[in-house]
Structures are given as C-alpha cells and as structure tokens.
Computed example of a mutant assay.
Amino acid sequence: MQLILGIESSCDETGVALVRVPAGGGLPQLLAHGLHSQIEMHRAYGGVVPELASRDHIRRVLPLTEQVLADAQVALADLDVVAFTRGPGLAGALLVGAGVACALGAALGKPVLGVHHLEGHLLSPFLSADAPQFPFVALLVSGGHTQLMRVDGVGQYTILGETIDDAAGEAFDKSAKLLGLPYPGGPELAKLAEGGNPQAFKLPRPLLHSGDLDFSFAGLKTAVLTQANKLGADLPAHKADLAASTQAAIVEVLVKKTVKAVQQSGMQRLVVAGGVGANRLLREQLNAVCAARGIRVHYPELHLCTDNGAMIAMAAAMRLQAGQQQADCSYAFDVKPRWPLDSITASA
C-alpha cells in the first residue's frame, strides 16, 4: 500500500488530496481532499491576478495539507510520495506547489513526482463511482484547452483534434465578459442562459463542417460582440437570450465533433473532463446523443471538475502503477507553464 499526497496550484484554486494505492492492485482510492477557491479575491479585478494567486497559494497550501491528513487520520511521516502540478499553468503559482512538495519530500526523505495538470483532468473520472476502462476517446475541455484524444492507457495519448485559437472555456469566459457578467464568466453565462431562448440569435458554429476534429471559437466570440453592439441599450433585456444562444453554439460544436471522433475511432466509450465538463447542457446533450448510439459516457464527479488536488494525486498514482514514471529524491524542481499533453513520455 502506498499513500500519495497531491498538491494542485496551477491557477486560482489550491487543492490538496490524499490517495491510497492498494497493495494488491486496483484503482487508487481517494481518502480525503481539501480545496480553496480564490474566486472572491479575483472577482474584484475581473480575472485572475497572477501575483495575488501565488501569494494566496502560499497562505493556503500548508493548512489544507494539515486538514487533509487529519481528515484521513494519516500522519505526515506515513506519506510515501508527494506529487505536485508541474504544469501547465501560471509560473508563479506552479512554483508554490512545486516548492512546498519538494520541501516536504526533502524533510520526510520521501520521493516527489511532478504531474501534468491536464493529465490530472483526463484521469479524474477514475475517481468517480462509474470509472471508465481503457481505451476510450476523451473530450478535454479545461480553460484554454479543448482537445479530443484517443487514450489507450496512462501516458498513451493521441491527439485527434484541438483548438486552433480560443478554446471552449475561453469562449464562455470572454463572451460572459462581453455581456458584463462577473468572474468567473463561464458558470455565470451558463446560469444566465437557463432563462434564455437558445434560438433567439443566429450565431456561427465555427469549423462545425470542417471535416476534421479541430475547434475554433474566436469567431463566435466576435459574433457575440457584434450582436451585443447591435443591441446597444437594449442588451439588458436580451442578455439571457444572447447567453443561451452563445452556450447553444459552443455545446453544439463540442457534441457533434466529439461524437464524430468516437465514431471514427470505432470505440464505444467516451470520457469528458475539465471545467466545462460540468456544464449541464453539454452533459444533457452528450448523454442523449451517446445513448442513442450505444456509447458509454464517463464524467468526473461535479465537485472534481474544477482544479483539485485529488486529480493530481490520482494521476501520480496511476502513472506509478503503470510504470510510466518514477518518483525521485533529487528535490531539484522546475515548472512548465506551457506543456503539451501529448509530449508526456515515461521520462516526463
């Protein structure tokens, strides 16, 4: 049995979690996790302020670690591996988690392991009660990343399609800002859209009929801006309709391209992960379309769609189980603010 502590600090959430790897094999089990969101702090600025994010991670990470260990009734000395988010993300924020993890490892004489943030999201559905099995097609929709990939196992990722400009999460957030909605814009736009008519405005579905599996949402953002300017003083009266129309356009592209990817792969299993994966309309439409085609869909639990330490601890545990990476005791660390997921190898 191994106990792995995971620390996430890539952006505006501080997450710490503890997983146990069963001695006889099987999926790692989440024992406890803690999360602090910086939303209220950044809301006053309309977006994430990197320096403030880094300072808040410094304040939160050790108390959260103490809380998680207490909840799991585990002593610090009982840890076997300390994992942390190595990238991608904000450089300063990443350095906080990396520094704390390596300091803990050095103090305890235990190995440390740097984890890819997006791999954490990708593997987070394995924490759910309805865990997937390899292989599968994955839709990864997290912040500035929208990717479709074939996943044959831990560390075995083939990109099928990805965004060439704005990702789905950016389209939600930027459109929300154009509508005057507070940070974080994506969830606020989705909430407003519930009271609107998704057919009120005819907005583009970029690359929907491109023939490939790539995405582009920059044109949609421009169309939302154009429509908002046309409405002018009448925008408040039509804001919910414009939000609903925007969400409908994003979701339609995601659903149709994802189903196409699954069909082309010949698989019958889909994993959806990342913050946008919590969107209610996306889940409803994917569930309906996939059920009609006999495709099984797996999601992380809603509370694990956002950035969190559980996904980092889980990814570390699964990489170690698969022999894709080894933890080490060098305690020299670096971070990778830009780090393509498909570049991960056994020596990452």
Rank of each mutant, 00 (worst) to 15 (best):
L207K: 01
G195M: 07
V224N: 11
V255N: 06
P206F: 10
L203M: 05
N287I: 11
S245G: 02
G196F: 01
G185I: 14
R280N: 06
V251W: 03
A244M: 00
Q268D: 09
K256T: 14
Q227V: 14
P236H: 03
K221S: 15
Q285W: 06
P236G: 04
G277E: 07
A237N: 08
L286H: 06
V271W: 01
Q263S: 12
N287M: 11
K221C: 06
H303M: 02
A244W: 00
P300W: 11
T258R: 02
L235D: 12
R280E: 13
N279R: 13
G275P: 15
Q264P: 09
N229M: 13
L304G: 08
F201G: 09
E284G: 06
V262M: 01
P204Y: 08
A261I: 09
A288R: 07
Q264I: 13
N197D: 15
A278E: 11
K257S: 08
P300E: 05
K256E: 15
V276G: 03
L192E: 06
G186N: 08
P206S: 08
K257E: 09
A261C: 12
Q199G: 10
R293Y: 03
F201N: 08
V259Y: 09
V262A: 07
Q247W: 08
N229P: 05
D212L: 10
A291M: 12
L242V: 05
L203W: 01
R293N: 04
K221D: 14
L220Y: 01
V253K: 00
A218K: 02
D234C: 11
M267I: 12
L235K: 07
P206H: 02
M267Y: 09
V272P: 12
K191A: 14
I250W: 00
I295E: 04
H298R: 07
A223M: 10
Q199L: 09
V271T: 04
L207E: 04
S216G: 09
P236E: 09
Q199S: 15
L254Y: 08
H209F: 11
A248R: 06
K202V: 11
